[in-house]
């Protein structure tokens, strides 16, 4: 919903903090997720994610959430799917070039970003969207990424310790 989505941007700071906590919890529960099986979890978790984020952000379930990099304004709502900032077509009143009545997703993102502690993340270049991930849960994907990273780091430390 458009009005809720704009509310979310106005409260980007709080939502970002909440998500950081939520993500830490999800990562901590990794052994539990593993016990149940990530594959078995995929569909129900994706459904819950879709409901929550759909309501709050008009989430399009791209499966590679970038809300923390986009001031809590979902960039997949940009008619051009821009992941890296506003196009040159933004109207002088800050509205979208394509949907005249909608505020530019990236004008919103820039506002939301200022309310977040991790505001510099909007400046990082985002990779091309992986459309094969569409519809999947980015929460679960994030947990597995963090887990994987921890494993790689610990093996790297381990092997460097040997030398």
């Amino acid at each position: 919903m458009y009005s809720v989505r704009r509310w979310a941007v106005r409260h980007a700071g709080g939502l970002d903090k909440f998500y950081q906590g939520f993500e830490t919890l999800l990562v901590k529960l990794h052994p539990l997720w593993e016990k149940i099986g990530y594959q078995r979890l995929e569909r129900p978790v994706a459904k819950i994610e879709q409901l929550c984020k759909g309501l709050l952000f008009d989430c399009k379930m791209c499966g590679q959430c970038a809300l923390s990099e986009t001031g809590m304004s979902c960039s997949m709502n940009c008619p051009k799917n821009l992941r890296n900032g506003p196009c040159g077509g933004v109207r002088q009143n800050g509205n979208c070039e394509v949907k005249e009545e909608m505020r530019c997703v990236w004008v919103e993102a820039w506002d939301g970003n200022r309310k977040m502690q991790t505001g510099e993340r909007i400046l990082a270049v985002q990779l091309p969207v992986d459309f094969s991930k569409k519809g999947s849960s980015s929460w679960l994907s994030r947990v597995r990424d963090v887990q994987q990273q921890a494993v790689t780091e610990s093996t790297a430390e381990h092997s460097s310790g040997k030398q």
Binding site: N81, N84, V125, P128, F131
Partner: peptide, 13 residues
């Protein structure tokens, strides 16, 4: 409209 990449990811590509 296609918009598979954006100008930024196109540059990188």
């Amino acid at each position: 409209p296609v918009f598979d990449l954006d100008c930024m990811s196109l540059l990188e590509t």
